[in-house]
Design a protein around this nucleic acid. Structure first.
Lengths: 172, 172
DNA sequence: TGAATATCTTAAACTACCTTAAGTTTTTAT
DNA sequence: ATAAAAACTTAAGGTAGTTTAAGATATTCA
């Protein structure tokens, strides 16, 4: 059994916006094939990527889903993407879920926390180049599949500077 | 029922090291009175604060506890601190916990993820001054209780620069 | 296929934040 | 009460990463 209980398979064309700022998020979904991204737009209009969800990853707006508040993020499809989709609010989920489901949820959530902790750590202590090298190791397939611009946003720098880093790394 | 199942109350004097780098973490604890911090030390020997745990907060090394690997962080007491302490590994916990315990765990974990997401967001898009202002609003009591040095570490800047920010903010 | 649009690169000028270092104030411990 | 240690401030000089802008290369789609 998996993170969410009631499921159906859905398909999104590349570029489809799945969740918008202002909407209350009422789903979680797990990517079967393709890739989604979640991101927010800051006061200066700049996009910052929160998470990529390639095959096997879960994506949602936990804050909106859990607290039933309007979302402050966007989720959309970077590639044509097939997902396991669950329309739910957390209450439904808890009422319906068996003990085993809950155990799986805990495992999924714990993994999510661990990944988040690692990212915080990188942002606090590593240089842009170190973060880029780490990205390559952590997501070798994504490095090929994603435009540089999105990777730059994820590691927290400008595309121009990532371009410079690539040149430097290549020259080694 | 609360996050962990088997509990006892423990007391730590200010300065006590509760978890060290290299040890496998086998506990979680919730602060009743006082304050703990978790942090890591980077290659340059610099300390970076991951989390403060004042009254009501949970602290642990999820990665070490969940994956049974040596910890890469430290946890210690910033003030004299009283905690609800649980010595466990995750397996025990899951075997022992009732359905209601699991629900509470999920809620605790979800809150943790949400807090982590917010922090990532701040690190990606806000200036040091904005992060400081946010810290004051989010943890008004801590702003008084903690040395500047620790707050600087948490928001990801040097104490010298935070000192400069304070002067600038005060002058407004 | 070709025009339009998005992506990537390069470089110069700029800024947020760091490093170093020295002086001041506060806290701790005897 | 006093010395020692820790915390805080200030300032000058340095650097990682940004901004702006323009040209080069891909990709999309009619």
């Amino acid at each position: 059994m998996d993170f969410f209980d009631i499921k159906k398979v859905k398909f999104f064309k590349k570029g489809t916006v799945i969740l918008q700022e202002g909407e209350v998020c009422k789903f979680g979904c797990k990517v079967i094939k393709g890739c989604l991204k979640s991101y927010f737009i800051d006061d200066a209009g700049k996009e910052h990527i929160i998470q990529f969800a390639p095959e096997g990853w879960l994506i949602s707006d936990m804050n909106s889903l859990f607290n039933k508040v309007p979302s402050t993020i966007y989720i959309d499809a970077i590639e044509d993407t097939e997902v396991l989709w669950v329309r739910t609010d957390m209450n439904d989920l808890w009422e319906l879920a068996s003990r085993e489901d809950l155990l799986d949820q805990i495992k999924t959530l714990t993994r999510n926390i661990i990944a988040g902790n690692k990212r915080t750590r990188m942002l606090l202590s590593s240089t842009a180049e170190e973060r880029y090298q780490d990205f390559i190791q952590t997501y070798p397939t994504l490095t090929q599949r994603l435009p540089l611009k999105l990777i730059a946003s994820y590691i927290g720098i400008t595309p121009e500077y990532l371009s410079e880093i690539r040149r430097k790394v290549a020259g080694k």
